[in-house]
Design a protein around this nucleic acid. Structure first.
Lengths: 134, 134
DNA sequence: ATTTAGTCTATTGATTTGGTGGACTAAAGA
DNA sequence: TCTTTAGTCCACCAAATCAATAGACTAAAT
């Protein structure tokens, strides 16, 4: 399951996608509209900004906004930025690979099942973008 | 990602599937062969037994064994027994459904994406069985 | 009766999750 | 230039979960 943080992140960025082109949106507005704890959302938006999904403007009239073409931002990339691996096993993760100890069998059948699972999952998540959230 | 517990569970049950028909296998043997901490494995096997995946025999010559047709035991069912939900959001889980607060929009687009994801994932995990692990 | 092997309860240390509080900095506008 | 607005950064926290471990108990075989 995705963490609450990730669920909030998706709600927030989806909201910003809808509001795209209408100028920056304040954290307070997003928090109220999407019912997300303010300080928690603060941290989440900052993280999304550091991962280059969002940009922000300080001071009056400031806030966060999406600065990328929403059609090019995959849902998979957002999940990876917030929660990390999408694959169910470290040894089949494309972006967070870690070899599993004692899996000396050259062709681990467990691995095979989870590669197939990963591919099925990613086929959806890599091809869905922010546009699919609005 | 699957918990370590779940990874151990899969290794253990896969080992027992290979050894099927050859009588009970002791926890100690499984622990050594699959490099799983003994006491942790103990708890895991007990849980798998309580979920009716395994049966056991006490005393000398005892141990754990698979008592079901391995072709009928899906990988999805094992994951659910140990880690719980496979879906990425509570509100799209088939077996562990929980409604998400404040998702008053009748057709939540986020939900839609994750239903599709769930279905793609389950299409693999529901159709792979213990036979695919050996 | 002894050995073997599973069962049950409970505790534990480390890490992650889901937050909160408060000080600081940059920008706009009067 | 002062005030207000709004993002940034740091530090901390309680509760839950994870990954085990310890030890006493029970059932079966010889």
């Amino acid at each position: 399951m995705l963490s609450k943080k990730n669920q909030y992140a998706l709600k927030a960025i989806s909201y910003l996608t809808k509001k795209m082109g209408k100028g920056p949106v304040s954290i307070v507005e997003i928090a109220e509209k999407k019912k997300i704890p303010l300080k928690f959302l603060e941290a989440i938006l900052l993280e999304l900004k550091k991962n280059d999904f969002l940009d922000s403007k300080k001071g009056k009239g400031g806030g966060y906004y999406l600065h990328k073409d929403p059609g090019t931002v995959s849902i998979a990339s957002i999940i990876r930025a917030i929660d990390g691996p999408i694959a169910l096993l470290p040894c089949v993760s494309l972006n967070f690979y870690a070899k599993c100890e004692d899996c000396h069998e050259k062709s681990c059948k467990i691995k095979k099942v989870f590669i197939e699972t990963r591919d099925a999952t990613l086929k959806v998540l890599e091809n869905k973008t922010l546009l699919d959230l609005i």
